[in-house]
Design a protein around this nucleic acid. Sequence first.
DNA 1: AGAAAATTAGACATCCTTGTCCAAATTGTC
DNA 2: GACAATTTGGACAAGGATGTCTAATTTTCT
Lengths: 226, 226
Amino acid sequence: MSQTIAADNFPPRGHEAKRVAIVDAAMSVFCREGFAGANIDLIAAEAGVSRQTVYNHHGDKEKLFVAVVRELTERCNAGIFATLATFPDQPKDLEADLVAYAVRMNRNCICSRDGKFLRKLIQTEGERYPELFAEWRENGPGTTLPALAARFARLAFAGHLAIDDPDVTARQFVGLINAELQIEFMMGIQPSQEEVLQSATNGVRTFLKAYGARQPASRLRETSLA
Amino acid sequence: MSQTIAADNFPPRGHEAKRVAIVDAAMSVFCREGFAGANIDLIAAEAGVSRQTVYNHHGDKEKLFVAVVRELTERCNAGIFATLATFPDQPKDLEADLVAYAVRMNRNCICSRDGKFLRKLIQTEGERYPELFAEWRENGPGTTLPALAARFARLAFAGHLAIDDPDVTARQFVGLINAELQIEFMMGIQPSQEEVLQSATNGVRTFLKAYGARQPASRLRETSLA
DNA sequence: AGAAAATTAGACATCCTTGTCCAAATTGTC
DNA sequence: GACAATTTGGACAAGGATGTCTAATTTTCT
């Protein structure tokens, strides 16, 4: 009755761009300064917006913070699942394929700007907002790790791996490919491409020493039939 | 000339206890609230001391923060080296000994109160005080990881392990035994004893699948002589 | 062009925090 | 018991931040 066909949402429209700009700026500032240290004036300035506009869009510093976390969680989960879709289910060269996958995972999800921000926010404010991050925990690692575990189970079923517990395997895979990046993660530093590749290569190599099938494995299922 | 023989330092004495109480309280508050969110009044109250006393001992919020980090770094490094001294250089049962060592490492150094606090402080304020944490990085992982690597090299030399690069091995060992505690670490939660043991057990098992010497290894050196 | 909605800049009240000062009380030492 | 050092509580100034309000301006849609 009031508007044409409703492009996206009912009340405002195009200047949704400002909303995003505010959330983006808030991300950056909250992560740099922490919740208490973050300054709304600074966020407004960094978003290229007046302070009042920040209050118009999100009513409150705390509400703004929640919006930031939700947005980050969404983006990161989307990235993780997109990357998970590229898991090598039918590997040609298992080691090379897993390394490439590990690098994608790290680059797109963990070392990305969003990944770094989400990690930092969880680290700094996780204890203060348990319900908020419980949501992340459920939709994040609680969903993606089992999904990764399922991929490993499939590889094992196809005879490429010899594993016991797929969930343990998935967690150890992540632990191994990130083994050399722990300090950077703690300090909030973005590892270089070389570091990511190096850590992934070493990690996958060790992973396969532990879990690689002893047979060439490419057609183990047929062999068992013969 | 002024005092007897000087028990420890020249100016004050016994009420050094208050200094420690203040630093302890400051640790707790800084970690809970972050630097910006930490409140000197709260620190004073938690230390059972008046605010003025806090300012008498350490002149400044920032100086107090530095004192906290130094103290934490010292304590944690002491703990790590003490634990490193218990590394199983002549293992009877390699798997059991490594698991026990991993559990000690985690319990005493990483999941301890001090370890948790230091980790949190590095995570939250590491970017803001690079020089302060550069010191930690050097004396912490920069010193302890090579020391751990040396122990693994020794195990390999004695025929208990088959490894290529001891430094990589050491980092992967740490990554594996902590693989299942990552989320707890990020959230600042203290893992339970069972979780620590579980993660260590699974981690060591995988570690040995990858790096365990193929021979029984207990007397490989003699064998090679024969 | 004209109307409605959103944005802006600035002033403003309020609250909180840091850090200082000081006089009185407490503590510890000889 | 007396003296020196330390601690205490409270008052205090200065600064900074949040969140509100308002009038003017800009943007957007029809």
